[in-house]
Design a protein around this nucleic acid. Structure first.
Lengths: 257, 257
DNA sequence: ATGTCTTTGTGAACGCGTGCACAAAGATGG
DNA sequence: CCATCTTTGTGCACGCGTTCACAAAGACAT
């Protein structure tokens, strides 16, 4: 639905590939650095190197935005910074709420980079009554009871979930019901949301496990290959050898597993 | 510029697709939850639903590991937990060092999930002399000067970088020189590493910016379309309207930009 | 103005990942 | 022992993303 092509034959169609969108912030960062060094223009080759991507890929990415380069010269840094910022929607202010002010939530709240990128921490929310009123990063923590009102009053459309896994879905449901349509989830859970709501997940544990996989591969598998198999259906095969004291989903959020 | 290729040249040894490897931790988490509820077997349909993926994809993923299912019945939960854990290398202990004990580093150190997944925080390292000896999460912070010795003594092969962007490459170089071959990078920088070293990046700012893009799209662009363009090469077009007090790369790490 | 040189923008080929659809395998019941 | 039913494992087709390679566009020098 609504995927109909616009009559406009303009090169700037609305179909920017997801993979390209994911790289735009990368380019923007590199361009911002160049801007601070007062570099007027960059070639696709230079910028690609700075962003760590292939130059052809970068040019193709930019081609989806339009023809902003000058052949023989390169791209105007300031102009491109503006275009990408606009495309990403960073020229406007995005109020954000962080739910779950544990270690990670506090770390996020303390991060100064929010404000400098169009994101503003509108509120910090936690379910612990003892946290209420206590300032974190200069912002007083508010109780979950007021979640709906906070969302509504501040016109929040982006929410960050940094709660334990057990609370994530419930918090998510309330955020969505209150009007949030984009969620950044740090809890180790698969969230179900209605159509029209975007969810992105940040999962440190998964990243570490992927690294472990490659690490194991690099170390060669002669030592652990063809190892003995546990009795097919015996108890607790292996893996989680220890620390089973609590359900896995009970952890704060940073390190889902 | 020795732009160390971070991409793997297709580790064709076992031939498990990268996309599959990235999903294995997801399956493992769902399986662990089932295991704790003493569920003996699951069908690909059920497990796929729990992991939030397509059942055909899940079956294909498992097919790369071998034929561990029983037709007409499903998969033995405990057995699969073991197989995936083994494949990911989680049956062995992985000593990990965290460099940069700021808000995020502390949050990571405090996370209890490390130990329960085969990962062990071997040391916390920070460049601030004032931090030295101060315990975080029960582990005394050590100074950067001892980095090499720490890596060596503990046989660390996985490092987590949670430093400001400005220090990341330098820390990375020292980690690699000391023997680390897998790095999880939280700093907003493109790290260059020699071949054979894996780098994975966690970048909250990018995630937020991607959400903002979709959010803007959802809101409809009738209000900001065809907007005025800034003088081609004028100063700071927009985007970074405020908070320029320091270079962007000066931020701790959680929120790269 | 003209030629040369640099760099963009993109057509086309290729490879990977995804999802469908179905045959084979095995459990279960009569 | 045979029929039926469930669920796996996978061949195949499709679409997206990546990369190559090159013609066109424009700057710059003469």
């Amino acid at each position: 639905m609504a995927t109909g092509r616009t009559h406009r034959p303009a090169t700037r169609s609305r179909g920017i590939p997801e993979a390209t969108v994911a790289r735009l912030p990368l380019y923007l960062r590199a361009l911002t650095a160049l801007s601070e060094r007062s570099v007027p223009t960059v070639s696709s080759e230079e910028l690609a190197a700075a962003a760590g991507v292939n130059s052809a890929k970068l040019r193709k990415d930019f081609s989806y935005l339009g023809s902003y380069g000058t052949r023989g010269v390169g791209y105007d840094v300031e102009y491109l910074v503006y275009q990408i910022s606009r495309e990403l929607g960073l020229t406007q202010d995005w109020p954000v709420v962080i739910v779950g002010i544990g270690n990670l939530g506090a770390a996020l709240a303390n991060y100064g980079g929010f404000a400098s990128r169009g994101f503003r921490v509108a509120a910090l929310i936690d379910a612990d009554p003892a946290m209420a009123g206590k300032p974190v990063a200069g912002i007083p923590v508010q109780h979950t009871d007021d979640l709906e009102k906070i969302i509504s009053d501040n016109g929040v459309s982006i929410g960050v979930i940094a709660t334990p896994a057990g609370a994530a879905q419930q918090v998510c449901d309330r955020l969505v019901a209150a009007g949030v349509t984009s969620i950044l989830n740090f809890a180790p859970t698969v969230l179900s949301v209605p159509d029209g709501v975007d969810v992105r997940k940040v999962d440190l544990s998964i990243e570490l496990q992927i690294l472990a996989f490659h690490e194991q591969r690099k170390a060669g598998e002669e030592s652990a290959e063809g190892g003995p198999l546990p009795a097919a259906a015996s108890r607790g095969a292996a893996a989680d050898d220890s620390a089973d004291q609590g359900p896995d989903g009970d952890v704060p959020a940073v390190m889902p597993a």
